[in-house]
């Protein structure tokens, strides 16, 4: 089972500020799609719109051809990591995953599987309030993997990871894509995605600047880093 993430013509305003201005791209299965742009480019807003958390004023966002809020047991279609700090400090990591599992009709067995996979098993029964940012990112990845979804969407998953964690995250994302999953990863630093993204969507000011495969971008600009700098020049101004 594969599910493509398709975003088409998204518009979104927050008051006078235009957050999304015709955002359109597709994240195909079987590859890591880098979602790259400066802070404020609309990456997080796009992801929130895909999850049905924010309402777009125009356009559509589909996961495997369906609106996310229409999905039955949505975490089994799309796993997302939006904010690793969104944890109740007085609840253990394991119980955090357990309520999510229960919400999808899954059991504790699945919780222990994903904890094992992310190396969180030993600390999972401790209160989440004591977790480092790296542990929270790993717990967030566990939550995204809980429903064994064919598509994953991760917002800045490298934040707060130590070098060892960055290496682990890269190999995990590469493996997940190799299994045929759709993996959409946002970052404001091109370097983090350098070796793993097969497909890159550069965004700025709420719209796509360029979407292409890694190979064609490398051929054109010499490296993804160079492509990033060239394409996002002047787009980084804070709004």
């Amino acid at each position: 089972m594969t599910e493509t993430i398709e975003v088409s013509g998204l518009h979104k305003r927050f008051g006078a500020t235009v957050a999304l201005d015709g955002m359109t791209f597709t994240a195909p299965p079987g590859t890591v799609t880098g979602f790259v742009g400066p802070n404020g480019a609309g990456k997080s807003t796009t992801m929130r719109v895909i999850l049905g958390l924010d309402r777009a004023t125009g356009g559509t966002a589909l996961v495997g051809g369906h609106r996310y809020p229409d999905l039955d047991r949505p975490l089994t279609h799309l796993g997302a990591l939006i904010d690793a700090n969104a944890l109740h400090p007085g609840r253990s990591g394991r119980n955090h995953l357990l309520w999510m599992a229960h919400s999808q009709g899954l059991g504790a067995g699945r919780v222990d599987r994903v904890l094992e996979m992310t190396g969180m098993r030993t600390v999972a029964r401790r209160r989440a309030g004591g977790y480092s940012l790296g542990m929270r990112q790993r717990l967030g990845i566990s939550a995204a993997m809980l429903g064994d979804p064919p598509a994953l969407m991760l917002d800045e998953p490298f934040n707060g990871l130590d070098p060892e964690g960055i290496v682990w995250m890269r190999s995990l994302l590469r493996d997940l894509a190799a299994e045929g999953r759709t993996v959409l990863v946002s970052s404001h630093l091109m370097a983090e995605l350098q070796d793993i993204a097969g497909h890159v969507v550069f965004v700025g000011r709420g719209r796509v600047l360029r979407a292409a495969t890694k190979d064609s971008l490398t051929a054109e600009f010499g490296s993804l880093e160079a492509a990033y700098l060239e394409l996002t020049r002047g787009e980084g101004a804070l709004r």
């Binding site: 049905g52 939006i82 969104a86 944890l87 109740h88 999808q104």
Partner: peptide, 18 residues
């Protein structure tokens, strides 16, 4: 309110969109 304070409400609504 603890869910709103921690942003956990987004996790809740992503898991249960209704």
């Amino acid at each position: 309110t603890a869910e709103y304070r921690r942003g956990l409400i987004r996790t809740t609504l992503a898991a249960m969109p209704h």
